[in-house]
Computed example of a mutant assay.
Amino acid sequence: MSQRHSVLKGVDLTLSPGEVVGLVGENGSGKSTIMKILVGELAADAGTVTHAGVLGYCPQQPVVYERLTCDEHIELFARAYRMTHEAERRARRDLYAALGFERYAGTRADRLSGGTLAKLNLTLAMLANPQVLLLDEPYAGFDWDTYLKFWDLVGQRRAEGRSVLIISHFVADEQRFDRIVQLCEGRLCAGRTAAP
């Protein structure tokens, strides 16, 4: 018989429109568990999760089909989001250009480098221009140029009034966030408005 282990001990987190929030904490503090509950991958023992509009989710480990190309992934996810062909075409073009990996459009996922796979993972999360974007360690594997492009995309989402939650082990660029909250042993233990 497996023993139950309580990871989270009551977390109350609200994202406002146009807000970029960083959620930090040590390994094992419950960051990824929160994300999985927010997207419905795990059921919470108690409490509720409410959101308005489309959710975009970028898991820490990309969930892709090895034999599908980048274009085929985008087409598959666009159908799941019920996007029109025009919206899909525009989003594909814009995200390939923004992240600089259009030359891999016809490349199978199992032949992508770790950094390019991370770009595909982020593209799939942002494809439908979701109202709430949940990112779990989204820039792991990015080079500096892609890291800066990532923040440009986040800035655009903020300007459009969309919410972004970024989970990370640590925050290097505090000024890029509106608010940073810390998770300690399953609870939100500290929060601060990021420095201007």
Rank of each mutant, 00 (worst) to 15 (best):
S6D: 04
S6R: 15
S6I: 13
L8E: 00
D12W: 01
L13I: 13
T14Y: 03
P17R: 14
V20P: 13
V21Q: 06
L23P: 13
V24P: 08
N27F: 04
N27Q: 10
S32Q: 07
S32V: 06
M35C: 11
M35A: 15
I37T: 05
I37N: 08
E41T: 13
A44D: 01
A46H: 10
G47I: 10
V49Q: 07
V54L: 11
L55F: 07
C58R: 04
C58V: 12
Q61T: 14
V63K: 11
E66V: 01
T69C: 06
C70V: 15
H73E: 01
E75D: 15
L76N: 04
A80C: 12
Y81E: 01
T84L: 02
H85I: 00
A87K: 09
A87I: 03
A87M: 07
A87L: 02
E88S: 13
E88G: 03
D94P: 02
L95T: 05
L95E: 00
A97Y: 01
A98D: 02
R103N: 04
R103G: 00
A105T: 05
A105P: 06
G106H: 12
T107G: 01
T107P: 00
G115E: 00
A118C: 01
A118M: 04
K119Y: 06
L120D: 01
L124Q: 02
M126R: 06
N129C: 07
P130H: 08
Q131M: 14
L134H: 08
E137M: 06
P138S: 06
Y139C: 14
A140M: 05
A140K: 09
W144Y: 13
D145I: 10
Y147N: 07
L148P: 00
K149F: 01
K149Y: 02
R158M: 08
R158E: 01
S163K: 05
V164E: 00
L165M: 13
I166P: 05
F170G: 04
V171L: 11
A172R: 15
D178Q: 09
R179P: 10
Q182N: 01
L183G: 10
L183W: 06
L183P: 09
R187N: 04
C189T: 11
A190L: 07
G191D: 13
G191L: 02
R192C: 05
R192M: 11
